[in-house]
Design a protein around this nucleic acid. Sequence first.
DNA 1: CAACGCTGTTTCAACGATGTAATCGTATCA
DNA 2: TGATACGATTACATCGTTGAAACAGCGTTG
Lengths: 349, 349
Amino acid sequence: MGASLKDVAARAGVSVKTVSNVVNGYTYVTPHTREKVERALAELDYRPNLSARNLRRGRTGVIALALPELDAPYFAELSRFVIDAAAERGWTVLIDQTDGLAHREREVLQGIREQLIDGLIFSPLTIGREELAARTDNTPLVLLGERILDGPTHHVAIDNQRAAREVTEHLISLGHTRIGAIGAQENPSANTAHLRLAGYREALRAAGLPYDERLVPPTGSYHRADGAALMRRLLELDEPPQAVFCFNDLLALGALRTALSSGLRVPEDLALAGFDDIEDGRYSTPTLTTVSPDKGQIARTAVELLSAQLGSVKRAGRRAAGGSEPEHREAREVEADYRLIVRESTVRP
Amino acid sequence: MGASLKDVAARAGVSVKTVSNVVNGYTYVTPHTREKVERALAELDYRPNLSARNLRRGRTGVIALALPELDAPYFAELSRFVIDAAAERGWTVLIDQTDGLAHREREVLQGIREQLIDGLIFSPLTIGREELAARTDNTPLVLLGERILDGPTHHVAIDNQRAAREVTEHLISLGHTRIGAIGAQENPSANTAHLRLAGYREALRAAGLPYDERLVPPTGSYHRADGAALMRRLLELDEPPQAVFCFNDLLALGALRTALSSGLRVPEDLALAGFDDIEDGRYSTPTLTTVSPDKGQIARTAVELLSAQLGSVKRAGRRAAGGSEPEHREAREVEADYRLIVRESTVRP
DNA sequence: CAACGCTGTTTCAACGATGTAATCGTATCA
DNA sequence: TGATACGATTACATCGTTGAAACAGCGTTG
């Protein structure tokens, strides 16, 4: 397979290092030599051996993106943006699926792939503050979507609470007074769920509406099936809700399915709103009112934050003997943009 | 950062190689030594440096999965299965998005990541037989979904033509005589599209129905938007179809959206069928009749085929001097299972 | 008891690339 | 003309790991 620097050097009649210099754009090389080398490079179709280069340089050019499930559309869409943003910096992305399992998330944090990756973008589901603090691995890290406070960790997220509040206010503005929510979670580490719930309650309170627990059935996960099941429970109530805010679009699509097959008209009999703005929601019937986070911005920002950390990490080589104190750059919390998008599921055009 | 074998060896008071032996489960190590070493390993939290290991072994433990778009649900779902199957073998998956662009697909084939990956699973969209034959890189390769004949390439696919025929037969069996198809492609390399079209025509012919080109508008891509647009064109015909077979579920969901918002009832006024069985189609209203390829089987088979090739590739080391003839194991074509799943979009329950 | 064959461990070299320092050649200047 | 500076190239060590081979110790065997 691939030719090595040695092969190229032999062919060009120069030393290995000179070839290396040409490859790396070192300044002091005679045009004549450079040309010879470049011809040899081309003839042998030289490709640097990344393992070797990484071993020497202490960098791999690969970052990991750890997320719960690749087949949840939100994450699939986000991944695409992350991969694109990483590609712009010449990085390759490797994907780790945690399935939202605590032990898998812990493994990711502890750096299963430590030696293979330069950095980690992590969208946690169940991991909490303590686990994060207990992290010993010091691969640069950027968290997505979770606002885990007072940690020394960079993260990117939208203001979930405010967004949730706006959705709920929108439902209230339509005249609904009995508004349900699907997606509350009992796991105390499920930050996102808590924030969205808080936003929902805030809006109710501000409007002087009561908070009725029966309208907020908890769930463990956020798939269509959960949305469908929870909606069924809501419809069984003596006094079902007139509107429901689902904490993500998958839940909303599941709920929509239940509602429609129960003979309800949406939005006439029941208004439905989601969160995430996945593509499905733009083609469902009715189309889905939702919160649209700027996924491109989130991805780009995450990659930038990673890049910044990478810059300040000293080259591998021999680790500074004894120096074990973790670097304490302060964590940057970046707030990404979002928009409330009103569609047919809450307002007939 | 990470401790190296050297550090561990020093701590345990043995040679580096002995530590390596313990790490790699070499048999002949005294329980006593082993224990000492293991303690040191644990104390220093040793993790092998993969770059170094790979450099030495000529393997990286990473395979690439190249596909058009991660955010198309079919590919997202498939990716999850591939990642899982790879994980069982201790491999990590790196994802390459080609966007179905010919030049990106060519790059993938020529091995952009050559030095980073041990193997490639590739789901091409536009690449044809010639490009495949022109491939110089000899990283083990498995193709997905495309039946590119007489190439020396392993591949996994379902029998697209037969499946398409069955879908069409199903529509015919419902009594429809004017059946459209959405998803035909003009690009001669778009094998899958041609096979599905062939299956469709085969069914028509067998039933003695005429093939009407106007009912089969071509498209360049397979997104919801395309399905929606093409459906609009079909509905504008003097004599619109009574049933439409869409070559994938995204097209079908787009078409469904157009049909419903045009006031048609599905399936009463228009029957719709898709292909791929993505989760969206199980929660749409109506739910979607579709062909369900066994994605798990496809993924596992692809990984197995790759594994088999890897086994027979000689360790890196110095490439056999001069020996440049490509190995000619014959290509294995594996046919994966699928099922026709009839749902509400063709038959009211 | 010498030769042999095990087990257990070590030494050495090598994978391919690159940083450091040394070297060589030529032009410049006092 | 000899010292000096600098441009261009090279030798060497090194990153962390592992295969090959050597070696040491000890029990067997003819």
